[in-house]
Design a protein around this nucleic acid. Structure first.
Lengths: 171, 171
DNA sequence: CTTGACTCTGTAGGCGAGTACAGAGTTTAT
DNA sequence: ATAAACTCTGTACTCGCCTACAGAGTCAAG
C-alpha cells in the first residue's frame, strides 16, 4: 500500500500524540505476534486500525485490552471463531453473554466427558504398564503391551477444545 | 500401475485361495477407510501388499490384526509416527516394547499434567458461570463473564495427545 | 456389449491457529 | 547518504490424519 492509494481509510499521523502504537510495539506489549495481529484483523477479530500516511497500522492503547480479552477467552477454551462471534455481538450492541453462557455450559459438559475418558485411559495405560512389568514380555507378535490392552478402539470421538489443546509459540 | 509395469512386485492372484482380500473388503472389515489404508501404506505403517496381475492390492487376513493393532495403539494415544517406529522395531526383530514403555510412561506424566490443567480449568469455568448467574451482568465492555475470569493467559502450553483428541469419521 | 461397482495413481483440500517468506516501501540512526 | 530496522501485501506452508477428486483401467453381472 502506498500513500497515494489511501482514499477512504481514516488517516492518522499522531503517533506521538496519545499513546498510539505501531504493530511491532503492540506485538511486544501484548505478546501476540505481528503476523497473528494481521491474521486476527483479516479474520474480523480486530477492527481495522487507522493508518499513517504511508500505510502503517496505528493502534490506540485500547488494542491491548482487546488483545488481553482475546487471550483470556482463548485460555478459557474459546476458538477464535467463537471469540469473533462474541465480539461481533458486542459491536452490534447486543450483550454477547447469552452466547458466551451457552458456549461455556456446552464446554463444561464436553469437559466432563473428556475427563471421564482421560481417567479411563490413564487407568488402562497404568495397568497395562504395571502388568507388563510383572509378566515380562507378553507373547504378542508386535507388542503384547499394546495388544493385550482392552481400550476400545474404533469409536467416533469428538474433539474438544480447552487450554493445553493448542500449541502456542509466543506468550 | 499396469500389468506390464509389474517387474519386481510379488504377484499373487489367488483371491479365492486362502482368505485373500481386496482393499474394499479390508476397509469394510477393519473400519479403516480405503484412502486411509493407502495413506498408511505410503507412510510405511503397512507393508506393501502383493498385487493382482492388474495391479490391485491383495491382502492376507493378517492385515486385519495389523489394523486392529494400529487402532488399539491409536486409542492408547500413540501418534501414527510412534506406531510406525514401533512397527519398524518389530520388523527389525527388536522388541519394540522398550520404546513403547518409554512412550507410555512419558504419556502418563503428560496425562497427569493435562488432567490437573483440565481440573483447574473446569473449576474456573464453573465458578465464573455461577458467579455470573448470581451477579447478573458484570460491567465489562465486551463481556464481564470472560473479563472477570482469572484463568491465566499467555503461557506456553504443550499439546498432549490422547483418545478424544482426534476426530474420526469412520468406526 | 454395456452398465455399474471397484480399484489404481497422483494431487489437492481441510481443519485451527497461526508462521514464514519474498519483494517492496518507509522510518530512524549514524 | 546509507544501512538497519521496521512495515506493507500476498501467498504458501506448518502439523496430524486423513478425505476427496479426476481420469483411467479392471472386473462381474445382465
Amino acid at each position: 500500500m502506498r500513500a497515494s492509494d489511501l482514499k477512504n481509510a481514516r488517516i492518522v499521523d499522531e503517533e506521538q500524540g496519545r499513546g498510539m502504537l505501531r504493530i511491532g510495539e503492540v506485538s511486544k506489549r501484548s505478546g501476540v505476534g505481528i503476523e497473528a495481529l494481521r491474521f486476527y484483523e483479516k479474520s474480523g477479530l480486530l477492527d481495522k486500525p487507522s493508518r499513517t500516511f504511508s500505510g502503517y497500522r496505528v493502534y490506540g492503547p485500547e488494542i491491548l485490552d482487546r488483545l488481553a480479552f482475546i487471550k483470556q477467552a482463548q485460555a478459557l477454551g474459546f476458538s477464535l471463531d467463537e471469540i469473533r462471534r462474541i465480539v461481533d455481538d458486542a459491536r452490534r450492541g447486543e450483550s454477547p453473554c447469552h452466547e458466551v453462557r451457552e458456549i461455556v455450559s456446552r464446554r463444561l459438559e464436553e469437559l466432563d466427558e473428556r475427563m471421564r475418558e482421560l481417567r479411563r485411559y490413564r487407568k488402562e495405560l497404568a495397568e497395562t504398564l504395571e502388568e507388563w512389568n510383572k509378566v515380562g514380555r507378553a507373547p504378542g507378535h508386535i507388542c503384547g503391551l499394546i495388544e493385550s490392552s482392552h481400550v476400545e478402539h474404533g469409536e467416533k470421538k469428538k474433539k474438544i477444545g480447552g487450554p493445553g489443546t493448542r500449541e502456542r509459540k509466543r506468550g
